[in-house]
């Protein structure tokens, strides 16, 4: 991961919520979606992903349920809650605002 990882790390929770807002999912699938959507430029570490799930659970943004895998380890599936959707919308607004401010400060396009 060569791109500005600190900038991205601060937004891990939002990225995960955005994926869960489309459908329920589990750790590896979310990471795989992130990888694909970023054109292989971003892959979260297992530990990062796990930490984010715990934070989101504690905040009441997501719930988990066990999958019914017949083989291998059982999976924890996550589902976004309505509080999670509200949190996602708020952080997307924050992000857009921050992006516009930074863009205008460094002379990029804002519109």
């Amino acid at each position: 991961m060569s791109i500005a990882s600190d900038l991205i790390r601060g937004n891990t929770d939002m990225i995960i919520l955005a994926h869960l807002s489309r459908r329920d999912s589990y750790g590896y699938e979310i990471n795989k979606m992130i990888q694909q959507a970023s054109g292989q430029r971003l892959e979260l570490k297992e530990a990062t992903l796990y930490g984010a799930f715990r934070r989101l659970e504690e905040a009441g943004s997501i719930l988990f349920y066990w999958g019914d895998e017949q083989t291998g380890a059982r999976r924890r599936y996550y589902r976004i809650t309505s509080a999670g959707r509200a949190a996602l919308e708020q952080s997307m607004r924050d992000w857009t605002e921050a992006k516009e401010i930074i863009d205008s400060l460094i002379g990029g396009k804002t519109e």
Binding site: Y26, G27, Y28, E29, N31, E46, A47, L49, Y50, F53, G72, A73, R74, R75, R76
Partner: peptide
């Protein structure tokens, strides 16, 4: 358990 399942999936 969750780490293991993620690693095995990958």
């Amino acid at each position: 358990e969750e780490l293991l399942s993620g690693c095995l999936d990958k």
